[in-house]
């Protein structure tokens, strides 16, 4: 793939809709299952991932001409690890409470396939500005997916949104249980598929 011809806004929306990391690419599923009991968690991890994605994409776009092709992948990993360490330290210092809630997942961003994949397929072939918009779109797409699952689980499981009470009645504890993450993600994927299927039928 040569440098992209899409405009910046198209690149930005591409990450959120057409190539949504969670629902479309089905990458980085671990936090989507493990960390979506509340919307707040989804939002915070989304911010962290957006930060890492944008900064890594920009860094790689800047230095892509100097990277020797044989050490391409190690350089990507190293870049990501550096930015993950940075966001990890910043979060630990300024929002300690929320950082504890996310536990090990902030550090695990380093192994999220989505970030490496974007660097490999996009950032190393495009310029700084385009990489920035692509990274931002992917990060926000990830955040959107996390928050969508978090919305369903928190609302149905605890009757709250961002910690505020919304529903008045007793809710289904099942949705907060760890195993329900799998069911929720599976069901939401199926719904996305169904909607897409119907839309295609209509177009015909």
């Amino acid at each position: 793939m040569a440098a992209t011809t899409k405009s910046n806004s198209e690149l930005f929306l591409n990450g959120i809709l057409n190539e949504n990391p969670i629902f479309r690419l089905a990458l980085s599923m671990c936090p989507a299952v493990g960390l979506t009991t509340t919307m707040t968690n989804g939002l915070l991890l989304g911010i962290a991932v957006t930060f890492v994605q944008v900064f890594s994409s920009c860094t790689i776009a800047l230095i892509k001409d100097y990277i020797h092709p044989r050490i391409r992948i190690p350089t990507y990993t190293f870049t990501i690890a550096t930015w993950v360490t940075v966001i990890d330290m910043v979060l630990a210092a300024y929002v300690p409470g929320a950082y504890k809630a996310m536990g090990i997942f902030v550090k695990l961003i380093v192994a999220f396939a989505i970030i490496t994949m974007r660097l490999e397929t996009f950032a190393c072939k495009n310029n700084f500005v385009k990489s920035f918009w692509d990274g931002l779109g992917m990060g926000l797409g990830f955040m959107f997916g996390m928050m969508a699952i978090g919305f369903v689980r928190e609302l149905l499981g605890m009757g709250t949104l961002f910690g505020y009470k919304v529903l008045g009645f007793r809710t289904l504890l099942f949705f907060v249980l760890p195993a329900a993450g799998f069911f929720c993600v599976g069901l939401m994927m199926a719904i996305f598929n169904y909607v897409e299927f119907k839309l295609k039928q209509k177009r015909r």
Binding site: F78, M89, A92, A93
Partner: peptide
């Protein structure tokens, strides 16, 4: 290439560490 990358990354991480350490 590797040495320069390491040096830059070390600079970034070390800088952030010194800034955030006290705040943490």
């Amino acid at each position: 290439g590797l040495i320069i990358t390491c040096f830059l990354a070390g600079l970034v991480m070390g800088g952030v560490f010194t800034i955030t350490h006290d705040a943490k």
